[in-house]
């Protein structure tokens, strides 16, 4: 059975956990902007190395590097496809039989893209690990973002596991009625209707019930709403945000000059 709430947040008592979610968001977005500015993968690798002190200070040294496992297959395919078929190829690195060759430009391009992916995923994962979604939503609401966005994020995290278990039930129920999920393509294409029909009908019913429940709690009332989790932007948050943006500019300019 799926978990009740699907989040990867790990509760620890660290400097990074205590930062305001907005500050962490600014850091993450700056890093992502930076890796699209840089011109060579060596710069990206330097940015990647900076994750180590961050991970250490958030007391999550091991977990931060989990996404690398997921990236491995993509890296292999990326290097094979771009190494062999990169469209702007010029110099041959290794000549292969049957007219194929490994091209230097392709490998440079592949390493550029893979270092980018690596940095993005690891920093994104650090953000998710150290930020509770509830805190993120309440911090974004403080920035006067419409509360609809907050509702969408939090409600979805609860609904996804529920819909998934509903779907698993439908699959089991239809199989027990003799639905064929194996066989020819036509047979399998026919199986979509009995599987998706109940899901749609059930979800519409669910939506109407939820809407009634929300309205009973004054969801669309135009008044100031309070939230359970409170976040405050402290002085250290402001200092760190300014420092991050200064760092972004310095790194961005130097990576262009070097």
């Amino acid at each position: 059975m799926p978990r009740a709430l699907l989040i990867s947040y790990i509760d620890k008592d660290s400097f990074f956990h205590k930062l305001n979610p907005v500050t962490k968001l600014v850091i993450t977005i700056s890093v992502i902007i930076l890796i699209f500015i840089t011109k060579s993968f060596i710069h990206n690798l330097i940015i990647f190395i900076f994750i180590i002190p961050f991970a250490y200070y958030s007391k999550l040294t091991k977990q931060v590097f989990m996404p690398i496992k997921y990236l491995f297959i993509i890296f292999v395919i990326l290097f094979v496809i771009q190494g062999l078929f990169y469209p702007f190829r010029e110099t041959v690195l290794i000549q292969l039989p049957y007219g194929f060759a490994i091209w230097t430009e392709g490998l440079i391009y592949a390493s550029m893209i893979s270092s980018r992916l690596l940095v993005m995923l690891v920093y994104g994962y650090l953000f998710v690990l150290t930020t509770h979604p509830g805190d993120l939503v309440s911090a974004l609401r403080k920035l006067r973002l419409p509360y609809i966005f907050g509702y969408i994020v939090l409600a979805t995290l609860q609904i996804i596991p529920r819909v998934q278990s509903q779907m698993a039930t439908i699959i089991e129920a239809q199989k027990s009625r003799g639905l064929e999920t194996k066989g020819s393509i036509v047979k399998r294409l026919r199986a979509y209707t009995p599987l998706l029909g109940p899901l749609f009908m059930g979800s519409v019913q669910n939506a109407i019930e939820r809407a009634t429940a929300l309205e009973a709690r004054a969801f669309s009332a135009k008044c100031e709403k309070t939230s359970y989790r409170e976040t405050i932007i402290m002085k250290k948050d402001k200092v760190i945000m300014v420092l991050t943006i200064i760092c972004l500019i310095i790194f961005g300019v130097t990576s262009w000059l070097l």
Binding site: Y151, T156, I159, S203, N206, A207, R210, E215, S220
Partner: peptide, 19 residues
């Protein structure tokens, strides 16, 4: 309200599609 409630459910359906 019903449209806003539909959004998370739509996301749930998108994810259930994977199953």
């Amino acid at each position: 309200t019903i449209a806003i409630v539909m959004i998370p459910i739509a996301i749930g359906i998108n994810q259930a599609g994977r199953l």
